[in-house]
């Protein structure tokens, strides 16, 4: 089932960027809360931030399962959750990584290589009857790439789930530069 394209094609998805204390069990607390309150997680990415005490969990929430406001408020009650930002997909930059192994006979391999090059992806490994490629970029772009690969026969596919940061406010940045402030 191609649920993967849901979040990027669905206009109502929400991205929560949750800053948590980098401690054992914190992911279980967050994911457990979603399960306990009946909210669905569409995708999830976790990694430490620039501050080793903190990790960022980027959660794409299926908002049809519950009002986002309740999700955010309940999350914020977790003692380990330091900050929650809701990222508006239109005002944020999102990236995701896809890796796929495609079954392709040697004579057709060129087509997959070409496709990967058009998308500015990478060839990671080449076998006799298969090829492994990767692509990072916006989730929409990954959806398109995945769709096209499907025609060749995907053996294995893995996506990371998206990570996101807010778009920079250009006016504010220019203003800051004018005032001689870099940040």
């Amino acid at each position: 089932m191609s649920t993967n394209s849901y979040a990027s094609s669905h206009p109502a998805h929400h991205i929560l960027s949750v800053l948590v204390q980098n401690r054992p069990g914190v992911l279980a607390r967050v994911s457990g809360l979603f399960a306990r309150r009946g909210y669905n997680i569409f995708s999830l990415a976790v990694a430490p931030t620039e501050d080793p005490m903190l990790s960022r969990i980027t959660i794409v929430v299926d908002v049809e399962s519950a009002p986002l406001e309740q999700v955010v408020k309940q999350l914020f009650k977790l003692v380990d959750v330091v900050k929650i930002s809701e990222l508006d997909p239109r005002r944020s930059v999102e990236r995701e990584l896809l890796m796929a192994t495609v079954r392709v006979p040697a004579e057709d391999r060129g087509q997959v290589v070409e496709l990967t090059n058009i998308f500015e992806g990478k060839i990671l490994a080449v076998g006799v009857e298969a090829i492994t490629v990767s692509l990072d970029g916006s989730p929409d772009k990954l959806d398109d790439f995945e769709e096209l690969l499907r025609g060749y026969g995907i053996v294995e596919l893995q996506r990371t789930g998206r990570v996101a940061l807010p778009k920079l406010d250009k006016e504010a940045r220019l203003k800051a530069v004018k005032h001689g402030k870099a940040s």
């Binding site: 069990g25 279980a28 457990g32 809360l33 306990r36």
Partner: peptide, 14 residues
């Protein structure tokens, strides 16, 4: 214990 009691406590710690 912390796993079992996570959803029935305000907070727990091992």
């Amino acid at each position: 214990t912390v796993g079992i009691t996570r959803s029935v406590t305000k907070h727990n710690e091992l």
